[in-house]
Design a protein around this nucleic acid. Structure first.
Lengths: 192, 192
DNA sequence: CTCCGAACCCTAGCACCGCTAGACAAGCGA
DNA sequence: TCGCTTGTCTAGCGGTGCTAGGGTTCGGAG
């Protein structure tokens, strides 16, 4: 049995290597540069090996997305955990979200822009994605205001952050006023 | 001179045909299906003809984006023009924006998601893009609230709409509550 | 220790992509 | 009518995601 266990371990290691390499390559040179050939070369295996772990490029993007979603959730909780009042938590949450998007553009795209073959907003949604939404809900639910469903409020707040993040990064919003936009969004949306 | 004029007219006609065909194909089967080969086949010319009109695929996307931006601006103005009070105008604007995004997903992507080689938020931004932002500003500026710069408020409101539009269309937001989300956004962001 | 069989990986290739060089034909002006 | 410019097409480059099929390696039985 020991042999089989070793092989399974090696397989799992290699799978992690693929995902980490894809992520690294995507952050360095963009997702367009993540081709199966380049990826295979970087992990020092041939292309078909990738297909013994994933159905295709889409699934690799999905794997990066799940890893990234877990990190995003952790990052949001770390940022809000240090804050005492609801307002501080919401502001910290918004900033942390936008910082994550700006610092990990490729991962952010994998989660929220590209097609990684993942199900969203459903029962069979992968746990890391549900947990990332839960992390948002934890801080936003307390400022959703009377008569407004916390989940609905979280969706709207999240969508607004997503819009700011994506439009800013593609150069469609002027670069200077990012902080002012965040403040305005928090002031208007959150009921304190 | 008449001959040259005729040739120029035919060239312009063909260029319009390329843009219209690219748009049509993108709306029918998505931008991934808009390849230079397919596009050339549909306009009944060979591939190199495309490159005598546009530098490459990116510029074709840009051309569709400019055409779409003009339509979006017109659509927004048509929707707000019939409303008497500021609140009605803002609500109508938000609905019209989201309807445009939902009905013309490929064109919306060309404008706001894909790289069409266009400059945004700058002095040399193409006129249709500036005008689309102006159309937003016209209705949103009057509800930005005291002490808040209308352009900044417009950016935030627009980003929120963009987030709702893109997340909803990619299935990342539950499909049912679209109207409730729009109402919540307008209620909270606009100062009436 | 030998040898068989299975698991694994690689080479080679498919159809497609964006883009372009160079041959060729059509149609203008002289 | 003829030469030349203008315009278009054929063919091909290097790249893409993905896969069929052959070969090598290696574990385990005798």
């Amino acid at each position: 049995m020991s042999v089989q266990e070793r092989k399974e371990r090696e397989r799992a290691d290699r799978e992690r290597l693929i995902v980490a390499t894809a992520r690294e390559l995507a952050e360095q040179q963009g997702w367009d540069a993540v081709t199966t050939r380049r990826l295979a070369e970087r992990i020092e295996y041939s292309q078909p090996v990738l297909y013994s772990h994933f159905r295709g490029k889409r699934e690799i993007i999905g794997a990066v997305a799940l890893e990234g979603a877990a990190e995003l959730a952790a990052s949001l909780r770390a940022a809000t955990g240090a804050e005492r009042d609801p307002r501080g938590r919401v502001t910290a949450l918004a900033r942390a979200y936008l910082v994550f998007a700006a610092r990990n553009p490729a991962v952010y795209d994998a989660i929220f822009q590209l097609d990684g073959g993942l199900a969203f907003a459903r029962k069979d949604t992968p746990e890391p994605l549900q947990d990332a939404f839960a992390a948002l809900l934890e801080s936003l639910g307390e400022v959703s205001g009377d008569g407004v469903h916390p989940a609905l409020f979280t969706e709207v707040f999240w969508a607004s952050l997503h819009g700011l993040a994506t439009l800013a990064r593609s150069g469609r919003l002027p670069p200077g006023d990012a902080e002012a936009r965040t403040e305005l969004l928090v002031d208007r949306l959150a009921v304190l």
